[in-house]
């Protein structure tokens, strides 16, 4: 299982793990090139840029051109990692991701940071809560949301080997480390982090640690809650989710994303199409609202994306 149920005090941002892993990959594979749009300090591609200036391309504040250029580089045999804030990489440049990258089957890795509410003080203009929806709607696109730094490292290493377009959703804020070294990330596989019988929380990204907290609190009240970490939003591991849904007959999804178009919708479809048991279902996400300025943790609490909320939904 590889999940530390005891909440760890150590916190690392997934973007930091990305920057570190990218630097290591740069040493191992000369075909890896990195593009950024004037945010290399924030996205953490600065470490790769410093070590491999000849393979790093700062494209300026021009995300559309960055994504289409990455497609050309991929078609020429390179493995481009293109980074910016998720708002701009998937929002501003959506049509370039769709037509230059995905439609061309271009081997581009879009690794975008500062996703979701946990961007924090910058506020709603930068807090994208629609990126999973935007990316998963594109044919052939792989969509991944790592939950912590351990998983991020594995994700980045995995997608460097995988041939095809990938979107990785990374965060700004430091998040608890919930996995140990025995964790194994695979594209298309979900991980059961804690087994349970009364309800299932299917969570992604920053909500995974909160789901584990909720499951712990439930245990104290004599309830058994299963927690599944879905890092691979697309392709979705329907088998693992349905097995759990048929067992607990109650599923709650948890994500730092609009309830429309995110993980919850994917899981709802999977259950409706495949579950053999009658399953109670609830999505927890941002309830069709824009975010606002505030601290990352404060924002998650303010928008009800809390362990307490998950607990009440799971045991009610």
């Amino acid at each position: 299982m590889g999940a530390a149920i005891e909440s760890s005090t150590e916190k690392i941002a997934t973007r930091a793990a990305y920057g570190k892993t990218l630097l290591e990959l740069g040493k191992e594979n000369n075909d890896i090139v990195v593009l950024d749009a004037d945010l290399s300090g924030s996205t953490q591609t600065k470490h790769f840029a410093k070590e491999f200036p000849e393979r790093f391309f700062n494209m300026g504040i021009a995300e559309a051109n960055m994504i289409s250029t990455a497609a050309g580089l991929a078609k020429a045999g390179k493995i481009p990692f293109a980074s910016s804030f998720a708002m701009f990489a998937t929002g501003r440049a959506w049509e370039q991701v769709r037509n230059s990258v995905a439609h061309n089957h271009a081997n581009v890795k879009i690794c975008a940071t500062h996703s979701g509410l946990t961007v924090g003080e910058d506020g709603a203009s930068h807090q994208i809560i629609e990126d999973i929806a935007l990316m998963k709607a594109i044919p052939g696109m792989t969509v991944i949301v790592p939950a912590d730094s351990v998983e991020t490292e594995q994700v980045i290493r995995t997608i460097a080997e995988y041939n095809g377009p990938v979107y990785v959703r990374l965060g700004r804020a430091a998040v608890p480390i919930i996995h140990d070294d025995s964790h194994k990330f695979e594209i298309g596989k979900a991980n059961v982090l804690k087994e349970g019988t009364d309800a299932t929380i299917v969570a992604t990204g920053v909500m995974v640690s909160r789901a584990l907290e909720a499951a712990q609190q439930a245990e104290a009240q004599g309830k058994s809650v299963e927690v599944i970490n879905v890092a691979s939003i697309k392709p979705l591991d329907t088998e693992t989710i349905i097995k759990s849904a048929n067992k607990t007959k109650k599923v709650i999804t948890a994500e730092e994303h609009n309830i429309w178009g995110g993980l919850g919708d994917s899981v709802a479809s999977a259950i409706l199409e495949n579950a053999s048991e009658k399953v109670k279902f609830k999505r927890l996400g941002v309830n069709d609202l824009f975010g606002q300025s505030g601290k990352a943790e404060e924002l998650l609490d303010h928008y009800d994306l809390t362990a307490e909320k998950l607990l009440s939904l799971a045991i009610s």
């Binding site: 090139v33 391309f57 289409s68 250029t69 497609a71 050309g72 020429a76 481009p80 370039q96 037509n99």
Partner: peptide, 24 residues
């Protein structure tokens, strides 16, 4: 055909990618 196009404005960026790779 080297790149699928049709949505206007992408092609020069794509070509830049090929040209950068050739330089590398």
């Amino acid at each position: 055909v080297e790149m699928s196009t049709g949505s206007l404005g992408h092609g020069l960026s794509n070509a830049n990618g090929f040209a950068i790779a050739a330089k590398l």
